[in-house]
Amino acid sequence: MKSLTKSLAVAAIMGTSMLSSAAYAAEKIGLVNVQAVFQSLPQTQAVEGTIREEFKDALQDVARMEKDIKYYLEKQQRDEATMSDAEKKELQTKLVALRDEYTSKAKPLQEDIQRRQGEERNKILGLIKQAIDSYAAKENFDLILNANAVAYVKNQSVDISGQITDQVSKIK
């Protein structure tokens, strides 16, 4: 009796696993390398240029301060032996003031640039997501995975990154 129960249990498990394997084989699965799609889009390069232009004046101001600080540090090292105490103190005060101004401008500027880059990145990722959803519905995919999350793929023809890149590239 026990052996009959075990045999039925084993048969049920094997039958279920064969049915689930058949069900999985019928699913249409695709892969998208979202990072590669993002990097290859013309919108990504356009956004970089837009952000650079948006913060151009502030970046030039910070770069000027960096040059001034470097100049005064070099001057301090070069002329320290011939400077009077008053000149040394004046130069040190100027350096401290420049460093403080640089710090007060550079960090908020960097945060603003990162915030804007994040906003634009999220917009582009939204476009990519819409394109994936649209393509998956049109081509009857059951599952689309990020290619970076997949360790092995036997059939490379399931990679639809090129089609997604083409679709998103057409969006203005």
Rank of each mutant, 00 (worst) to 15 (best):
P108S: 10
A136E: 01
E48P: 09
Q114S: 14
D57H: 09
V96P: 06
I124G: 03
L109P: 03
D68S: 02
V62N: 04
Y102N: 00
A86V: 14
T103P: 05
T103D: 12
V34M: 04
S104A: 15
A106Q: 07
V158Y: 04
G49K: 15
T44H: 12
T82C: 09
Y72L: 15
T93A: 14
A147W: 10
G30P: 06
S40P: 02
E120V: 08
T50M: 13
K70G: 02
A137G: 03
E111C: 09
S157M: 06
V32I: 07
R64I: 01
S104E: 15
I144R: 05
V34I: 14
G30L: 01
R64P: 02
A81P: 11
Q110M: 07
I69M: 00
D61H: 05
F55A: 03
G126H: 01
K105M: 00
D100S: 10
A97F: 06
K129H: 13
I132A: 02
Q43D: 09
Q43W: 10
I132L: 03
A22R: 12
G118A: 14
R64A: 01
Y72P: 04
T93D: 15
V158N: 07
A131V: 00
A86I: 11
Y102D: 07
Q39N: 14
R115N: 13
T103M: 12
Y24Q: 12
S134V: 03
Q117T: 10
Y152E: 07
I124P: 09
Q130N: 06
Y72V: 01
S161L: 08
A97S: 15
D85I: 09
K75C: 04
S161K: 06
Q77K: 14
L19F: 11
A25V: 11
A97L: 11
P108D: 07
M65E: 03
R115G: 03
A26Q: 15
I69A: 00
R64K: 11
D85N: 10
M65P: 05
K89D: 13
A86W: 07
D79F: 11
F38V: 06
E90V: 04
Y71K: 12
A147I: 09
Q92L: 12
Q45V: 12
N155H: 06
E101H: 04
V32M: 00
A97I: 01
L109D: 00
A86G: 01
N122C: 02
G162P: 04
I124H: 04
G162L: 04
T103C: 07
V34R: 08
A149N: 11
K138D: 00
M83E: 10
Q35F: 11
E53G: 12
F55L: 10
I144M: 06
L127F: 01
G118C: 10
V150G: 13
I69L: 00
Q39E: 12
F141E: 01
T44R: 14
K75N: 11
D79W: 12
A22Y: 15
N33T: 04
Q156T: 11
T44Q: 13
D61L: 01
E111A: 13
L19N: 08
S134D: 03
M65S: 03
Y72R: 10
P42S: 07
L143S: 04
Q156N: 12
R64Y: 04
Y71I: 07
T82F: 14
T50S: 13
R121P: 05
I29P: 08
N155I: 08
R52N: 15
A23L: 13
E53A: 15
R78G: 05
K67W: 05
D100C: 04
R78K: 13
L59A: 01
D133M: 09
E53K: 14
L143G: 05
K56I: 03
Q92V: 13
I69D: 03
